[in-house]
């Protein structure tokens, strides 16, 4: 069952030089107890997408269309106050990139855990403290009974991210949004944190949205992955399928540019060109100026391509439309038009 359904979601920033649509009509579902990865390069809109779930956008940004349905509620239509009272920390929580800055330096980690627990669960301070110790134990902090009274500065970065995760999961949220949770950590700690997240997702029955630019992270823990380019979700596929049979030319290029896939002597493949300026996006497919597989007029004109279902992969590319790409021989299954239903 879908725990979170995002339909035709658009997020627009007002800027001095006109509106910028950072997330453009994105549609996807997150299933129960699933770890869903969102990958893409800097500026592709993946963090904006993550922030929009809890309406944490900057002041000049707003959800300009679509819906985000969680547990029967449309998060996109709720006010800040309603979200704070009913959703944030309680049903959906979020962790960020820099664990060192994610905790208030003037309170002990225990005080911060207890603050969140008593806010959302009907518990007195003593029970909340006991739960806090349990949680610290769950996330692998040694001597939690003693460490609970320490201030954040006396923990290492990896330990702090564990504590941040403990706080995020303290009220048993159904969904955890992790925005680059391992980026500031060294590689061995990264692997530990990812293992921890995977383990906790299972034991707490929490779905996770993992926002990252690191395909290694995605390969490590995600069940399904959405690839974003210039505000579009260009491909959604189960993890194995994405790595084995990438459908979108951008995904293919992205996978080719992973250093591990190259021998020592080969040059690293890079995608030529730059991501487009989203204030004046290219017509047609957003990727067409950099694409090496342009297959017809439609690629360069009109709106973005529809989404096609190709053997279980959702992909936004005319390569899989026999009406555009004459060389394509498989079936054409349009699952969503760019304009949605209207």
């Amino acid at each position: 069952m879908a725990r979170l359904s995002v339909t035709d979601l658009s997020v627009t920033y007002r800027t001095g030089d006109g509106d910028l649509t950072a997330v453009d009509r994105v549609t996807f579902d997150i299933q129960d107890n699933e770890i869903f990865g969102i990958v893409g390069e800097s500026g592709c809109g993946k963090s904006t997408l993550g922030d929009s779930f809890l309406q944490l956008l900057d002041e000049n940004g707003s959800i300009s269309g679509g819906s985000i349905v969680y547990d029967g509620m449309d998060l996109a239509a709720m006010t800040d106050r309603e979200l704070a009272d009913e959703v944030r920390g309680n049903k959906i929580s979020m962790i960020f990139q820099d664990p060192n800055a994610s905790l208030d330096p003037v309170y002990t980690v225990g005080q911060q855990l207890v603050e969140t627990i008593t806010k959302h669960l009907d518990m007195n301070k003593k029970a909340a403290r006991e739960r806090a110790i349990e949680l610290l134990d769950d996330v692998g902090i040694p001597d939690p009974e003693d460490r609970i009274d320490n201030y954040p500065h006396s923990f290492s970065g990896g330990q702090l991210q564990r504590i941040v995760i403990a706080i995020a999961l303290s009220c048993e949220p159904g969904l955890l949004i992790a925005d680059e949770p391992t980026t500031g950590l060294d590689v061995s700690i990264q692997a530990q944190i990812l293992d921890l997240l995977e383990e906790l997702a299972e034991s707490h029955e929490t779905s996770i949205v993992m926002i990252t630019h690191d395909l290694g992270v995605v390969a490590e823990i995600c069940d399904r992955v959405g690839v974003m380019y210039a505000g579009n979700m260009v491909e959604i596929a189960p993890i194995q399928q994405l790595f084995d049979a990438p459908r979108h030319p951008y995904t293919q290029a992205l996978l080719d540019s992973i250093p591990e896939r190259h021998g020592m002597k080969e040059d690293l493949t890079v995608i030529p060109g730059h991501p487009p300026d989203l204030r004046q996006p290219p017509t047609g497919c957003r990727y067409n100026p950099r694409c090496d597989q342009v297959c017809g007029m439609e690629c360069e004109t009109g709106d973005v391509p529809p989404t096609y279902d190709v053997e279980g992969t959702d992909v936004m590319c005319y390569l899989y439309d026999e009406g555009v790409n004459e060389a394509y021989e498989g079936p054409t299954n349009i699952v969503a038009e760019p304009g949605g239903d209207d």
């Binding site: 809890l54 944490l56 704070a84 009272d85 959703v87 944030r88 920390g89 309680n90 929580s93 979020m94 962790i95 960020f96 990139q97 820099d98 800055a101 994610s102 905790l103 208030d104 330096p105 003037v106 309170y107 603050e115 969140t116 806010k119 959302h120 941040v164 706080i167 995020a168």
Partner: peptide, 26 residues
């Protein structure tokens, strides 16, 4: 703009509490 104030918002901590209990001591 500090991440911890943002994560307090994400945890659903009320604005008066963020201002008085978290910003003020800092």
């Amino acid at each position: 703009n500090e991440a911890f104030i943002r994560s307090l918002e994400v945890r659903g901590v009320s604005t008066p509490r963020i201002l008085i209990a978290h910003m003020f001591p800092n």
